[in-house]
Nucleic acid binder design. Structure first.
Lengths: 226, 226
DNA sequence: GCAAATATAATAGTGTTACTATCATTTATA
DNA sequence: TATAAATGATAGTAACACTATTATATTTGC
């Protein structure tokens, strides 16, 4: 298992990078320290100059891997959703019962993330914090439609589609499987954000409660509609 | 009614502006054209220099009203949520039945916005598009906690609280009234965004469908829980 | 082991943005 | 009409997001 897992790689659309950061030591350090910097100081305060210095190099080296910092965020976001999909599939593969499968899926997608030793240079917990704190920045841009056409959001779209499928497996008559799936994925990040920054706007004081909330919500929606 | 409505003003926390834009003709034009520019070109491409030129003045005049463009967005966002609250209250005031009241509230909060002639210099339809396309930018910043403490998000918080109250009026035993309310408000903007940019991730092709989706979701959640 | 190719590092330069400061001019008010 | 207040015009600064160029390592093919 250890050995097998060590060879795993989350596939990323090559258009988001100039040179694959997984292909070199420097590239991996850029990703590792980029996550650290964004997590610590926020995406707005993150610059390629700082990242270059952080890895003991400079700006120009970073530009050889990523066109700009927005593409860097797209890389992290693609990696994150690709990794979530991998976790989702891995953990639901053996489950035959549709309801049980959906329930497990909701756990995987809404519970707080734990460190995955399979990917050495990526701190998934920090990356998850980044997704919570910056989650809409990859797509809330004027170029979203062009970037969508170029396939930058495929990992996220695949995940929504997978969840929607599991919803339909439980209740084929429910007409809002996609909307519900996208609401859960988006809403989960948002509830985690509220938990940290706006506790008065959520009843989920503990992260487990977020999972309970969404499980109950989905189950209610499907029970009613069928 | 016309007369009464003409004297209405959405109250905004004075900390978000340097000088109240409602207090002068220039101020109102700044807000009016600011909405136009952000709607047309996106918040990232919006600068005070362009806004100054747009109103036949210059950068320095804009800075006399707003500290920076983030505060300008906070102003628009505060106005929008304040206006939503006003519409919510106005349209549900006379309804005695709790379920009917909640149903009306969900319509007000999730349906596409129409022009409100009561506020001459504000194009609510364009402002709504801005909220859909930029909605998380007011709070997805490193300074969110400080700004929250300074009260910049009160209008939004009040609205969530009001909706949560209406949910509890229908079902006092439901334990997630705040989470559900914040999920609906956030989710509604998100579904409208998906409708425009990611149609494959939503079942809501027509805006009315978004309202149906959330009404059904809320009603299911409350029926089950009680 | 050496030359060629490739990757990385260092430096400099450009246009834009987000301001700040200063001063001149117009407009409102006492 | 004098005075104050609001607005307009201009200049300047530091940081940022790049691009370009050149120098120096490091790897690879032979």
């Amino acid at each position: 298992m250890e050995r097998l897992i060590r060879n795993l790689k989350i596939a990323i659309n090559p258009k988001v990078f100039v040179k694959d950061p997984e292909s070199s030591d420097l590239g991996k350090r850029l990703v590792e320290h980029g996550i650290g910097l964004i997590d610590a100081h926020g995406f707005e305060n993150f610059t390629f100059k700082k990242l270059g210095e952080q890895v003991g190099s400079n700006e120009s080296s970073v530009y050889r891997y990523f066109e700009n910092k927005h593409k860097f965020l797209l890389y992290l976001s693609s990696w994150y959703w690709g990794w979530m999909e991998y976790r989702l599939v891995l953990n639901t593969l053996g489950i035959a019962d549709a309801e049980e499968k959906l329930s497990k899926a909701l756990e995987i997608l809404t519970q707080p993330v734990e460190l995955d030793m399979a990917f050495e240079h990526i701190d998934e917990v920090a990356l998850n914090r980044i997704m919570v704190n910056e989650h809409s920045k990859p797509f809330l841009t004027k170029s979203v439609d062009r970037e969508n056409r170029e396939g930058y959001f495929e990992p996220y779209k695949r995940l929504v589609e997978r969840l929607a499928e599991m919803i339909r497996a439980v209740d084929g008559d429910y007409g809002f499987s996609l909307s519900l799936a996208s609401t859960v994925l988006e809403g989960s990040l948002h509830q985690h954000f509220l938990d940290v920054h706006f506790p008065s706007l959520t009843n989920c004081k503990k992260p487990e409660t977020i999972t309970r909330f969404f499980k109950q919500l989905v189950s209610a929606a499907l029970n009613q509609a069928s």
